[in-house]
Computed example of a mutant assay.
Amino acid sequence: MSAWQVHALKYADRNDRTRVESFLFDDDHNAPHPMDYFIWVLRRGAEVILVDTGYDGAEADTRGRPIIRDPRDALAEIGLQAEDISQVIVTHLHYDHGGGLHLFPNAEIHLQEAEMAYATGPCMCHGALQMPFTAEHICEAVRRVFQGRCVFHKGDGEVAEGVTVHCVGGHSRGLQVVRVRTDAGWLCLASDATHFYENVFENKPFPIVVDLQNMLDGFATIQRLASDRSLIIPGHDPLTTELFPRDGPEFCWRLDQGPHKGFPF
């Protein structure tokens, strides 16, 4: 079978952050450390798989974290309509990754069993663990279950030929990463298994964590899944937009052919 094309679409950013929000162990916690927000699109001929959904304007207002563009508008500019998206891989149910499920009403979702159990279980009695979740987003995921439009994975699973998911946990109990066969080799959409390149390559955990050992073990897993370290794609690193070529709209970057400049790690 032919390889997949992979695009990253940026829908939001935050420039008011410092390094203390990105790394548990760091020598300069007060230095600025911006964050970008992405959704990812896999395409092979007529096949389309969306990885994560972002969040909408209402959630942006609630959390005081503005979006640059609605994820639906971003997709429309590359020729995709939200209503036509039939497959969505949800890496985890935090608001910025699963908060736009309702924007894709006809999609079947792929989710780890452990993530649903975590997001609906006793851990949510703790405010610190509940903080990245929004109740209505979780209810939307539950509705997909009752509609028969949720495929649960337990550990490793195949979504399509050349696209697999792998549960690593750590940041969220059922966080899964996505492995994609591309012309450049096996690419790993790591999502929040590593928010930034620095997390994985300098072994620095991200502060929002439910299981620190799983997060650290996950760093090794994503390096094993990718054919080359330059084919590991972090969930939020602005460096992605510098390393990979822009393709089409100003907010769209192509990942499946590898970086177009020297990889610094």
Rank of each mutant, 00 (worst) to 15 (best):
G162H: 07
E108W: 08
I49W: 02
I39F: 03
G169P: 10
L255G: 02
R149D: 03
D96W: 15
H110W: 13
A114S: 13
D156W: 04
D96T: 15
Q257E: 06
G100R: 07
D56P: 03
E136G: 04
Q130T: 10
G174K: 02
V200W: 08
P105Q: 06
I89D: 00
A160G: 04
L239H: 05
A117L: 14
N106D: 12
V48W: 00
T221N: 00
V209H: 10
F196E: 04
L101Q: 09
L216P: 00
T164V: 06
L9R: 05
P34K: 02
A184E: 07
V88E: 02
Q130M: 12
L255H: 06
M35S: 13
V145T: 06
R229E: 11
N106A: 09
L243Y: 01
A3S: 07
L239G: 04
A135E: 14
P205R: 05
E202I: 00
D84P: 05
P66V: 07
D237N: 04
T120R: 00
E242L: 13
R179W: 01
N199C: 05
R254S: 14
R143Q: 11
R254C: 09
P264L: 04
L187W: 00
Q112M: 10
I138V: 15
S2P: 13
F104W: 13
R246M: 13
F206S: 01
R43Q: 15
Q257V: 05
A82M: 07
H94S: 15
E21D: 10
I68D: 14
H94D: 15
V168F: 06
G45V: 09
V159H: 03
I39K: 04
V90E: 01
G169Y: 04
R229W: 05
I109S: 02
V165Y: 10
P205H: 01
I39L: 13
P249S: 10
Y197K: 02
N203H: 14
D192F: 06
L9F: 09
E198A: 09
E202C: 13
G45D: 03
G258L: 01
D61I: 11
Q87M: 07
K10R: 12
P205K: 01
T91V: 05
P245S: 14
R229T: 11
E158L: 05
E115M: 06
Q147A: 11
R173M: 14
V6E: 02
E140C: 05
D247G: 00
N30S: 11
P205C: 12
V200G: 01
Q130K: 14
V142W: 04
V6R: 01
E59N: 09
A107S: 14
W253T: 01
F219V: 04
V209E: 12
C139P: 00
H7Q: 11
D183T: 15
E77V: 01
I78V: 14
